[in-house]
């Protein structure tokens, strides 16, 4: 390590940058291909050079993917499904984060007999593969009358996310000084006031981590969406699949590329906006600050 940092332009440093550059190109290449081809007319793609920049720039594939492309049996574009996903993701993320925080708070600051077992069981849910719960979950949604609805999907994601959000908050709050809770108790604050006034305001980093984690997972989920959604609650990921795999007519690769970028955009934005908190939050508690 020390040899790398001795000279500003040492040979080691040069090699390091070269390797990093190669890796960056390697990982960014697919994104480049997607973006470059999404701005080309279909004829240009058919010429076969996927890596070339567009000769004629056009926004038509984007317009088509967003509002006119054939998805399933309707030519609506991805727009309504994008809205479906937002309507599903936002409450699912907020509720699972809030409940995870509450769980973490109880498991660390209001400990009870058998709390370790309860936490272990909650943790276990992180390791259950999606596929196993499909059928019982479908049955349960049916019983609750939520089959095929967006609320049903919210519930599924909420339940499935709770294991992770509880884990995040429990570990974060385990390092939160119990003396603060005691001081607030002497000051006369009750269960919820301590939570909202003392713990939550100090939970910024872990909230960001949880929101990113939950948003990414729920937005990108395909299996639950494909299994439990009806025509009017289909999320973006499933719609994208329908767009790309529709077997009739010409394969509009430029439209598919544009649609794929549209589907990935929200998670990308969430990462760019709050990515630095993500690392900070993951490191929180790792080192004594």
């Amino acid at each position: 390590m020390s040899t790398l940092s001795t000279g500003k332009f040492g040979i080691g440093r040069l090699a390091l940058y070269l390797v990093l550059l190669v890796f960056a190109i390697y990982y960014l290449l697919p994104l480049y291909v997607m973006l470059a081809n999404s701005f080309k007319p279909l004829a240009e793609i058919r010429q076969g050079d996927m890596l070339a920049l567009p000769q004629v720039w056009t926004l038509d594939p984007w317009r088509s993917a967003w509002s006119t492309a054939q998805i399933g049996i309707q030519a609506t574009g991805l727009k309504p499904y994008f809205v479906n996903s937002i309507v599903m993701v936002v409450p699912a993320v907020l509720l699972s984060t809030l409940l995870g925080a509450l769980n973490g708070y109880v498991l660390t600051k209001w400990r009870f007999r058998g709390d370790g077992v309860v936490f272990g069981l909650i943790l276990l849910s992180c390791f259950i593969p999606f596929q196993i719960v499909l059928i019982p979950m479908a049955k349960m949604l049916g019983v609750l009358g939520l089959a095929g609805t967006t609320s049903g999907l919210v519930l599924v994601h909420l339940v499935y996310g709770l294991g992770f959000t509880t884990l995040f908050f429990r570990n974060y709050y385990a390092a939160f000084p119990t003396e603060l809770v005691r001081a607030a108790q002497i000051d006369g604050a009750g269960f919820f006031r301590i939570f909202t006034r003392i713990l939550l305001p100090s939970s910024g980093p872990i909230i960001v981590v949880t929101v990113i984690w939950q948003f990414t997972n729920i937005w990108n989920d395909f299996l639950f969406g494909a299994s439990f959604a009806d025509a009017d609650s289909v999320p973006m990921t499933v719609a994208l699949n329908n767009l790309v795999s529709s077997s009739t007519g010409v394969k509009e690769y430029n439209v598919h590329f544009a649609g794929a970028v549209l589907a990935a955009l929200p998670t990308l934005i969430v990462y760019v906006v709050s990515g630095r908190y993500f690392v900070r939050g993951l490191m929180a508690g790792a080192v004594k600050g």
Partner: peptide, 30 residues
Amino acid sequence: LHPSKRDIAMVFQSYALYPNMTVADNIGFG
């Protein structure tokens, strides 16, 4: 009795100041 009903006040080893509040709010929280 609950700690808040005992008419006592406590100074903690770590001071236990509420990190998100100003000094004035810390003193006034009770």
